[in-house]
Structures are given as C-alpha cells and as structure tokens.
C-alpha cells in the first residue's frame, strides 16, 4: 500500500457544554485515506463525522490524537503553517445553496482560492479548467452567472470547481449530494469518482449507506464519536460484523420491493454525546449485549480475512 495521504490516529475532540459538562463529539477516531482512494465516513447525526472532518481541516480544536498529512504531523500547526496545507486539502460543503456567496459570480467564487493563496499566473485559464473539470462545459456558459441563476446540481459543481482550482490532493466532502435531487446526485458522485481515479484522495461524510456502498472503496462506520467498524465497502455492506453495522445495513430501504428485508430496528435514538455509556458505548441499544459489554471498552481489531476491523467484544 502506498503511503497514506491522510492518517488520523486516536483523534479526540471534546468541547465544553456548560456546567462542567463535556461533549465527546469525537472520542478516539482513527482512519487513513490513500491517494486515489475513496473513503466514506458513515453514521447517524451526532456521531461525530462532521466534527472529524472539521478537526482534519483544523477548524475544530483537537483535544488529543494526531492528524498526519503526507507524513507531516499537522495537529499542532499554527494557522500560518496550515496555509500551504489548505492549498492541498479542500472541503466540499453539503448545501450548494448556502456554500456560494450570493453576491459572487461563478468566476469570483472559483478565483477566490487563487487570490487567497497568491496564485497569480493564468488565473482565468485555471478557473476555466476547473469549471470544465467539474463538468461545467463550456465554461463560458457559467462563468459570469450568479448562484441564483444556477440549478442545485450546477451550484454544487461550482463549489467543486472552487475546490479543484488549487489542484488539491485530498478532498473532504461533507454530505455532497444530500440536498440535491435524486436525478443529479449520480452526476456529482460520478464526478468525485473520476477525480479519485485521477489520483485524488476523497473522504466523504454521509449518512447514506447506499451511496457509500456504490462509490467508496472503504467504509468507516461511526457511532457516538468512535469508528465501530471499518473495511472494504463490499465487505462492510455485505458481511457486516458489528451489531450496529448489521442493524444499520438491515434498515436501508432497497429499490426492489420483493427483496424482503428483515429490518432489525434498534429502539430509541443515538444517546447524547455528553453522557457516554460505560464499556461498549453501543451496549444499551445492542440486541446481543452481554454483561461484560457494560464494563469493557472494545477497540477496533481485525475480523474476517478481508481487511475488515470491528470494535466488538463478541466477535
């Protein structure tokens, strides 16, 4: 395996919630993204997946753990030291209606990263190339428009073009299609897939297992601030090991009405990340929990033979 682009080890992000309480948003997450690899970070809301991405971008304060980018530990980098890293690491936002400044024409939005990073040569060509790479061809048709003159899918492409203009090596995409119509989602995801093939590393945050199953090479499943299962997408979806992943996979609706799924519905909702249950944090909702699950905190360890890992005492 090639050297990973991004390596996150035991990342912890805690923040105060008043009255001496602490939100354990991210509580020991490890993951890697290699060049040309598409990794999906999957989980329900409040599991810490977005905070993980923000911590990687150094937009959330890291409590403990390390973030290594191309062999350099960037965890304690100052904002000044981060600037060259931000050149190579780009964030794509969820909401294409919100992530473009309504007063900026497409050109201004895409040129902004070049201005911020002081790239002065061939700006216009770079902007056009980025737009066309993002599927907005010919670029002339789009370059002078304002966001409200574009459809949702086109806005997301502009947003992606603005991320591509600096020719990054790593893309962090936070729910890149969840606000878009079904008919255009595949186009945006296909675009990410092509970028991956051209050598970019992609970390996509999503709550949609079906999307992850189709596009990701590897899937990390998060629950309450931890990765509970991780492995090749195919294995995690078809042969889930952790009881949480099993339940999650079982409740995903499928297109074929005859494929009678037996949804294994967990009761209740993800507990609040202020009071983390003792032992295995999934035990209060786990259908197969035993007594020791209340006291022992399981760590990720290899299960099966296909590079899959799960954090469960009972496997």
């Amino acid at each position: 395996m090639t050297e990973p682009l991004l390596q996150v080890d035991d990342l912890v992000v805690h923040y105060p919630a008043g009255r001496k309480r602490v939100v354990h948003a991210v509580d020991g997450v490890s993951l890697t993204v290699a060049p040309g690899e598409f990794v999906a970070l999957v989980g329900e809301s409040g599991c810490g997946k977005t905070t993980t991405a923000q911590a990687i971008m150094r937009m959330a304060k890291v409590t403990a753990g390390t973030i290594t980018y191309r062999g350099r530990d960037i965890t304690t980098f100052s904002q000044r030291e981060m600037r060259p890293i931000r050149h190579e690491m780009q964030l794509i936002f969820q909401d294409p209606y919100e992530s473009l400044d309504p007063r900026f024409r497409v050109r201004d939005t895409v040129i902004e990263p070049l201005q911020i990073h002081g790239v002065t040569d061939n700006r216009e060509e770079r902007v056009r190339a980025a737009l066309e790479r993002a599927g907005l061809t010919p670029a002339e048709l789009y370059i002078d428009r304002y966001p409200h003159e574009l459809s949702g899918g086109q806005r997301q492409r502009v947003s992606i073009a603005a991320s591509l203009v600096l020719e990054p090596t790593l893309l962090l995409a936070d729910e890149p299609v969840s606000m878009l119509d079904v008919s255009v989602r595949a186009g945006i995801l296909g675009l990410l897939d092509e970028l991956r093939k051209s050598g970019l590393g992609i970390l996509m945050i999503t709550h949609d297992l079906s999307t992850a199953a189709h596009y990701a090479d590897r899937i990390c499943v998060m629950y309450l601030g931890r990765v509970v299962e991780e492995g090749p997408a195919h294995e995690v979806i078809r042969n889930p090991q952790h009881p949480y992943t099993k339940a999650l996979v079982s409740v995903v609706p499928q297109s074929d009405p005859d494929r009678a799924t037996k949804p294994q519905i967990l009761q209740g909702e993800t507990p609040n990340p202020i009071n983390i249950p003792s032992g295995c944090r999934f035990h209060p909702r786990c259908p197969v929990a035993e007594a020791r699950c209340q006291s022992e905190d399981p760590q990720l360890r290899p299960v099966g033979g296909a590079g899959q890992q799960a954090a469960c005492l009972l496997i």
Partner: peptide, 13 residues
C-alpha cells in the same frame, strides 16, 4: 455561520 464563510476559512483566508 454561512457555509461560504466557512469555506473561505477552510481555504485559509
């Protein structure tokens, strides 16, 4: 709190 401000921050503006 708008995403485009967050984006500019992420870019290092």
């Amino acid at each position: 709190e708008r995403a485009y401000v967050k984006r500019a921050q992420a870019l290092g503006a």
